[in-house]
C-alpha cells in the first residue's frame, strides 16, 4: 500500500529561513562536534588511542577524527600514557602552545594519578601541571571508555559560557585557566 509522504522536517515556507537560538548554544554545538585532538601518546594508552581512531571504533562518529600533531592546530590534548618528570615540561609547553579554547583529557591511570608508577621518575597525575577536564579510568582504558570520556567532554563543552569567556578573554588575556597553582 502506498501512503502519502509527509514531510515533518523543517519547512522553510512556513517557518522562514531563520533558526532562532542562543549564541552560546550555536558556538558550543560547533565546538563540541569539531574537536581536534592533540594525541599526547606517551605509553600503551596511545595504542588504544590509535584503536579509537581506526575504523572499528571510529572516533569520526563524534567529529574528532582530525588528530593533529601540531599544538597550533588542535584544541583538545589527550594525554595518553605515563608522564615522567622529564617529559612534563614538554607536555606543559605543548599545552601552552595550543590556542584557546582548549581542553585536556587524562586518559588512563598513569595520566590521571601516576598509576602503578609510584616512583621518583613519574609525575603523579598530569593534573599537577595541566587543568584536566575529563579523567578516563582504565589501564589502559578500552576504546569505548575513551569514547565515553570524549562524549562527556562534548557535554561539558555544550554547557560552557563561551560568549562570556570570549568577551573576558578579549579584555584580559590572562584570565584563562593556566593550570593548578
Amino acid at each position: 500500500m502506498v501512503t502519502e509522504q509527509q514531510d515533518y522536517a523543517y519547512n522553510s515556507k512556513i517557518e522562514g529561513e531563520v533558526v532562532v537560538s542562543k549564541a552560546d548554544a550555536v558556538i558550543n554545538w560547533v565546538r563540541s562536534h569539531s574537536v581536534w585532538p592533540m594525541p599526547m601518546g606517551l605509553a600503551c594508552c596511545a595504542i588504544e588511542l590509535m584503536g579509537v581512531g581506526a575504523s572499528k571504533f571510529d572516533i569520526a562518529r563524534f567529529g574528532m577524527e582530525v588528530m593533529r600533531f601540531s599544538p597550533r592546530q588542535s584544541d583538545c590534548m589527550i594525554v595518553a600514557g605515563t608522564v615522567t618528570y622529564k617529559m612534563a615540561q614538554a607536555v606543559r609547553r605543548v599545552y601552552d602552545q595550543m590556542a584557546e579554547p582548549k581542553w585536556v583529557v587524562a586518559m588512563g591511570a598513569c595520566a590521571s594519578t601516576g598509576g602503578m608508577y609510584r616512583s621518583y621518575a613519574t609525575l603523579q597525575g598530569v593534573d599537577r601541571i595541566l587543568p584536566v577536564d575529563i579523567y578516563v579510568s582504565g589501564c589502559p582504558p578500552r576504546p569505548e571508555a575513551l569514547l565515553d570520556g570524549m562524549m562527556r567532554l562534548q557535554d561539558k563543552i555544550k554547557n560552557e559560557k563561551s560568549l562570556y569567556q570570549m568577551k573576558k578573554g578579549r579584555e584580559d588575556p590572562d584570565h584563562l585557566p593556566t593550570g593548578p597553582r
Binding site: A88, Q89, R92, R93, D96, R128, I129, T178, G179, P180, R181
Partner: peptide, 8 residues
C-alpha cells in the same frame, strides 16, 4: 618557566 606556571 614550567615552575612559574604550575609550582611543580
Amino acid at each position: 618557566d614550567v615552575v612559574e606556571r604550575t609550582d611543580l
